[in-house]
Design a protein around this nucleic acid. Structure first.
Lengths: 200, 200
DNA sequence: GTCTATAATAAGATAGAC
DNA sequence: GTCTATCTTATTATAGAC
């Protein structure tokens, strides 16, 4: 608690506020309150709102990248890996709320801010999945597929649904249990669609 | 030109500014400049930034809804319909830029603003597609499928890709021609994945 | 390092002339 | 209806005490 560095507390609070309100809507006062410090102290550590935002964006983006760099090498089969991935994405984004909407919204004007991390992540994940695909093909588990298209298919199906979920469930006035059922159905459907496409 | 109502000119300019900068980042002055009128005139017509935003959001949302209400009843086969839909979505969002990112971002705090339109659209599109499915099933063109899951699959694959395209192509430093090839490949892949799943 | 008080500015809103 | 000029407020940022 008290041994958590103040700088970290502020950054954490900033991330929460920025993800909730966006770059423009976020308030330095709200960040200070959330972190339990004075407004002036934020400027002491981070100089300006702009620089704080950059740090928060970096951090939020890294969190997302780490999700995709999960240790999936431990899964035994491609089928199992696919199930684990879908499940993990759902759990993460349900917990993290608007982080993906936030990133896709704020990054559009500032591609450079994440260009390097994105490319690195892309290389690592790309080659990791490509290797997994090769192994599975050799074992005769799946047919030969394109790694890029496969990843894009998976992420599209997972992430778009999770991004739209608040709108869908609010507009259709789903109760909490209905939402849970919806998610479970969706996970099954995504797995079904992807697996029957690639399995041998 | 001059016979375009001023109110409409302002609304159009507002939509452009809000979609580009978001609710918080948009500036009344920028809207006035874009519309070629005075700042005070915006208040005369729309009272406040807040009310202008609501109108702009409504209008942007309607545009999107209209896209999904396309006259697809004219297409002869389910296969043809699917191809037309994928193509239309791509064309629309490449032209309209960040409209989807904007909506998914801004609506998260204000579901009520679009609840009714969304539900109406959902009902209309849902029953339209369900009817199309029934016809195609009877003709033996496709297997029996769930309309909700099918629509979600289609929109996920289409829209997530288009939302992420700016980030992807910037981070991977794709040239314009490469982006075009990417899109064409993606269209083929989406159609392939969906069609082989449902065709009989 | 952390606070209080305050400056500086940006931006939305309005009054009033035309 | 449309403009100029101005008011008001919200918010970032800083100076300076402790």
């Amino acid at each position: 608690m008290t041994d958590t560095k103040v700088e970290e507390k502020i950054l954490k609070a900033a991330k929460k506020e920025f993800v909730a309100k966006g770059r423009g809507g976020a308030r330095m006062q709200a960040i200070a309150d959330e972190a339990g410090v004075n407004k002036a102290l934020i400027h002491y550590y981070f100089r300006s709102k702009d620089q704080l935002f950059q740090r928060a964006l970096d951090s939020a983006f890294s969190e997302l990248m780490n999700l995709f760099l999960l240790d999936i090498t431990k899964t035994n089969s491609f089928k199992e890996m696919l199930m684990v991935l879908i499940d993990t994405h759902c759990k993460f984004f349900i917990q993290k709320g608007n982080i993906l909407n936030f990133l896709l919204w704020e990054i559009r004007n500032d591609h450079d801010a994440v260009k390097e991390s994105f490319r690195r992540m892309f290389d690592v994940v790309g080659s990791l999945v490509a290797r997994k695909i090769n192994e599975a093909v050799k074992k005769g588990e799946i047919r030969r597929i394109d790694a890029f298209e496969f990843i894009l298919n998976l992420l599209s199906l997972d992430l778009f649904f999770l991004m739209s979920l608040p709108v869908i469930s609010s507009a259709l006035e789903f109760a909490d249990e209905q939402v849970e059922i919806l998610i479970e159905n969706r996970k099954r459907e995504i797995f079904r669609l992807l697996w029957q496409d690639i399995k041998k």
